[in-house]
């Protein structure tokens, strides 16, 4: 049982990295990307190839994966970020489709549809780390590190520029912010950190193929962010944990037939998302609808009070 829970813990940590990095661009910069699984995949394939042909040390695989994912995201972000909002969503969807074809067809690098088998375990301090009990602390530590890095960035002047762009691109531009540069850097950082999750995933599963990096994965990661709470620190982690642990938990309810669990899971997801969007649009960790309304009312009151005061001053 312990190993099973630790195994889930590893997957939660890996997906938490993905959700946190997507939240970095989605929650703070307002860039809705449907191509996050692409950088997850790039990280996994680069990490796997490095582990199989160069070294299985994370000190080799992670930097290599980050560099490749960053360069790739740079090449794609520069033209794609010229478009705003929903147009970027469409552009990222195109990128996701393109990447799936490359992952499926570039046999030399990705093993094609058959994928890569026999990826060596992570090698650290002369030990192979593959058992859930050993891999979980490693994956959790990396997830925490990624969370810290993104928090530091969010609370820096760069992070404030991101939120300014999210709230109003035109206003941020009028204040002299270089929108294209800031957006590009945020996408590059997000992609490079997502690649770290890919490396861990490839090493842990020791097998990867295109099925793990499809649009479904991108949508799943986006759901983790939305359910947990967009633009919050811990929301994506909560979302990842919830969406990965729920299927496992359902499979333990012996009165549910195994053949129906998949359908029940989909119903719960659908209902959960709908209920959440109605009552807690900010996600589980984000502000509730009531709190938002109160905040809005307070803000309106404050504004009304100020305008009243100005009128009184004018009357004097």
């Amino acid at each position: 049982m312990e190993a099973y829970l630790l195994n889930l813990g590893v997957l939660v940590s890996i997906y938490a990295i993905l959700a946190v990095t997507l939240n970095f661009i989605m929650g703070y910069a307002g860039i809705f990307s449907l191509a996050h699984a692409v950088f997850f995949g790039v990280g996994a394939y680069v990490g796997a190839q490095m582990a199989m042909h160069v070294s299985a040390s994370l000190f080799v695989t992670i930097p290599a994966a980050m560099v490749v994912a960053a360069l790739l995201s740079l090449a794609l972000a520069l033209p794609a970020l010229r478009v705003r909002g929903e147009y970027f969503v469409a552009a990222s969807l195109g990128l996701q489709m393109l990447a799936i074809t490359v992952f499926s067809e570039w046999k030399g690098a990705t093993g094609g549809i058959g994928g890569l088998v026999g990826i060596p375990a992570v090698r650290m301090f002369g030990e192979d780390i593959y058992r859930p009990a050993a891999f979980f602390p490693l994956a959790a530590a990396v997830a925490v590190l990624v969370l810290i890095v993104t928090r530091l960035l969010v609370h820096s002047s760069f992070g404030r520029s991101l939120t300014a762009i999210r709230d109003s691109e035109s206003a941020a531009e009028s204040f002299g912010k270089n929108i294209a540069l800031i957006k590009t850097i945020s996408v590059v950082v997000s992609a490079a950190l997502a690649a770290v999750a890919g490396v861990l995933y490839a090493n842990y599963l020791s097998f990867i193929n295109v099925e793990s990096f499809t649009l479904n994965t991108s949508v799943l990661v986006m759901a983790m962010v939305i359910i947990g709470g967009t633009g919050t620190a811990l929301g994506p982690v909560v979302g990842a944990a919830l969406l990965l642990i729920l299927p496992g938990l359902l499979s333990y309810l012996w009165f549910l037939p195994q053949t129906e669990i998949g359908a029940i899971q989909q119903i719960i997801y659908g209902l959960g998302m709908a209920v959440l969007m109605i009552f807690r649009p900010g996600g589980l960790v984000g502000r509730s609808a009531g709190a938002r309304k109160r905040r809005k009312r307070d803000a309106l009151k404050a504004a009304a009070g100020q305008s009243e005061a100005r009128k009184m001053e004018g009357a004097k």
Binding site: A3, N7, L8, L11, G115, L205, I208, N209, P247, S251
Partner: peptide, 11 residues
């Protein structure tokens, strides 16, 4: 799919 399969196999 590979990932749900690994979770199932681990269980």
């Amino acid at each position: 799919l590979p990932q749900p399969a690994v979770v199932a196999m681990t269980k």
